[in-house]
Design a binder for these strands. Structure first.
Lengths: 194, 194
DNA sequence: ACCTGAACACCGTTCAAGT
DNA sequence: ACCTGAACACCGTTCAAGT
């Protein structure tokens, strides 16, 4: 059996919020102990899944000809966000393995090519991963449509207007914090810094 | 026994990388089952610890008189980073409870007071929490001195110069990605956006 | 190398019963 | 309300033994 088969099943189980070595073994038709032939332990398996997931975003967007560096970064960031939000339970693992994995290295190198100052490219990584992590944190599984999610937040996030007047007044904008528009707005703001 | 006693012991155990309900019970001199009088389940306990930890950063920095809005945000962000990096294992829980907790609500309100556009205040939150999360992800317990950590990264992060020339060339800056200077640099860049 | 069966040393949570 | 003792239904990981 290919390790990829095991990793795909592991991602499925993460999406269902129930990744255990035993459940994974049963899903791929093995005994729990047999999994340790493929990965030394659970943590290694999760790291491998995280790197595989990272590679699902189209890395070539970062080298797309005919686009400005900022547009390349924006289109890749949007693609990455889309991939990762479909698997919110895997996002913490991505944060953990953000630097170590081979795919992350590739992304880092491309990012350095687009921005002259390495400090700026790290700032972009921090923003992109931070935004995705905050959005993922409030998802249980694959996300419902964005409009639905925003509408839910609008009713969910009501606060005491006396104690938190500004938060109360900004309710609609705050509900849309998890929107693609807000994500793009923040990224552009960061990229437009002098 | 006060719930705070239980929460403090829980944070201790998180720092040691070994928070279990059984270990917690034994540390505070109770039976595992007795903990469920204080918190409905493990997740609720962790959320409560996260909020308590968030409150350890000096919230009054966000209202300090005589400082510009940007300086208030910077000093609070630095204080928050210091508190959270002392407890890296608790940071994922902070990300998860970033919006729900009562203390987070207070921080959000203050941030809205400092910046005219709510979208900008969210962008700052994303950056600050993202940077802290990435730094925390590579810590096992309370962090060694910064210089030591950077020096370790400098030798740790060596890559193939042929495959990743820009990453190789920027090694020193990349090693310092987890520095206070880099954190401040990115934050200022974000705040200086037009 | 890959896999099974069985075990070891743990988990979180529940619940009758006591105070 | 708070706590104990004991149980239930799980975990990850190891390892002799088989192929």
């Amino acid at each position: 059996m290919e390790p990829e088969t095991v990793m795909d099943a592991a991602l499925e189980l993460m999406d269902e919020g129930a990744l255990t070595m035993r459940a994974l073994a049963s899903r791929v038709g093995l005994t729990p102990g047999a999994l340790y032939t493929y990965f030394p332990d659970r943590a290694a398996l999760v790291s491998a899944v995280a790197d595989r997931l990272l590679a699902e975003a189209d890395l070539t967007l970062l080298d797309a000809p005919g686009l400005s560096p900022h547009d390349r970064i924006e289109s890749f960031a949007l693609a990455l966000r889309e991939v990762l939000l479909r698997h919110p339970a895997a996002v913490p693992a991505i944060l953990g393995a953000a630097f170590s994995g081979p795919t992350a290295l590739h992304v880092g190198e491309s990012l350095l090519r687009e921005l002259s100052d390495p400090r700026a490219s790290y700032t972009v990584m921090v923003y992109v991963l931070g935004a995705i992590a905050l959005e993922a944190a409030e998802l249980e599984g694959p996300p419902p449509p964005e409009e639905e999610r925003i509408a839910l937040r609008r009713t969910y996030l009501v606060v005491d207007p006396e104690a938190f007047p500004l938060t109360h007044a900004a309710n609609d904008v705050i509900a849309a914090y998890i929107s693609t528009d807000q994500f793009r707005w923040g990224l552009r703001r960061l990229l437009s810094a002098p």
